[in-house]
């Protein structure tokens, strides 16, 4: 375990370092310099030194420090991703478990393909259409939300406005969760131990509960990084579709308006988030079932 943890920590450190370098390269584009490779590399070096001093430059759009701007925007995105994770687990886990094991497995696969084929933005628009026409909720598709409505609010209208993006991120996450679970279940179904232990006299339920379940949960944890990627991608689209001013939305605008300092910082934060979640997931999976994916 210690060995594995050490290796994964090394991997995490290298990954974060790589993300810092990528961020430095992107933000170096914003540095005024002479043309050519050498000045550019010098600019990257300068940015790396700046990063080490926690100076991430200023946003070209707002003129604020990139750190402050991110600080203002990231809570909304994190709240979105966190609540989305909740929805993803609540919706995706039962789906994955019901469809991943048991008689429904074979018939479920094509159904899942159809559901998962919808790109996130299509699903978001469909949700909004349903909310407007069936529930008569207000939606923020075509008008930006003036006051950055907090995701947790006592105001019913704010809650309704917040529910859709949350649901959208959650559903995208649920698709990833159920896929990870079904994959883990399929992997564990191949183990010959089921037949072996069954023949030696254990009951099916005992085998599933005591020996198969940890493997399946470990499989889910080992896919934590992938699920995070799905959630973050969905957050970008959700914030953009529903005009919610978060960090993901800011990234899209920063790239569109060539605000590279801001874009670099957000990209780094997202990559770091993925790396950390992936790291924790792998450790959890290893502790549970000695089954981390090969590094």
């Amino acid at each position: 375990m210690l060995n594995y943890a050490a290796r994964q920590t090394g991997r995490l450190a290298l990954g974060l370092l790589g993300a810092v370098v990528v961020a430095a390269v992107i933000s170096a584009i914003a540095v005024p310099r002479a043309p050519g490779l050498a000045p550019f590399l010098a600019a990257v070096g300068t940015r790396l030194v700046d990063f080490a001093r926690l100076d991430f430059g200023t946003s070209a759009i707002s003129g604020l420090s990139a750190m402050d701007e991110l600080g203002r925007r990231i809570p909304a995105t994190l709240a979105l991703v966190l609540t989305g994770t909740g929805v993803a687990l609540i919706v995706g886990a039962p789906l994955g478990l019901v469809f991943g094991a048991g008689p429904l497995r074979r018939s479920a696969a094509p159904l899942m393909q159809i559901v998962a084929a919808a790109p996130v933005f299509c699903a978001g628009l469909a949700l909004a259409y349903g909310a407007v026409h069936l529930l008569h909720w207000p939606v923020s598709i075509n008008a930006p939300v003036r006051s950055a409505a907090p995701i947790f609010s006592s105001n019913a209208r704010d809650l309704q406005l917040a529910a859709l993006p949350m649901l959208m991120v959650g559903l995208a996450g649920a698709a990833a969760v159920q896929l990870a679970l079904r994959r883990a279940a399929a992997d564990s179904a191949r183990g010959s131990y089921r037949a072996g232990l069954r023949r030696m006299g254990l009951s099916v339920i005992e085998i599933e509960w005591v020996y198969a379940a940890p493997l399946v949960i470990a499989g889910l944890l080992a896919s934590a990084g992938e699920i995070t990627l799905a959630l973050l991608s969905a957050a970008v689209v959700a914030e953009w579709v529903f005009h919610r001013p978060g960090a993901a939305d800011l990234f899209v605008k920063s790239v569109a308006l060539q605000d590279w300092n801001m874009a670099a910082l957000i990209l780094f934060v997202f990559a770091a988030l993925t790396f950390v979640v992936d790291f924790l997931g792998r450790l959890g999976a290893h502790a549970l079932a000695n089954e981390g994916k090969p590094s």
Partner: peptide, 13 residues
């Protein structure tokens, strides 16, 4: 039932 150890009758973890 007495299986062969090489048939991997045990859960790996």
């Amino acid at each position: 039932y007495l299986p062969s150890p090489l048939a991997q009758p045990f859960a790996p973890h």
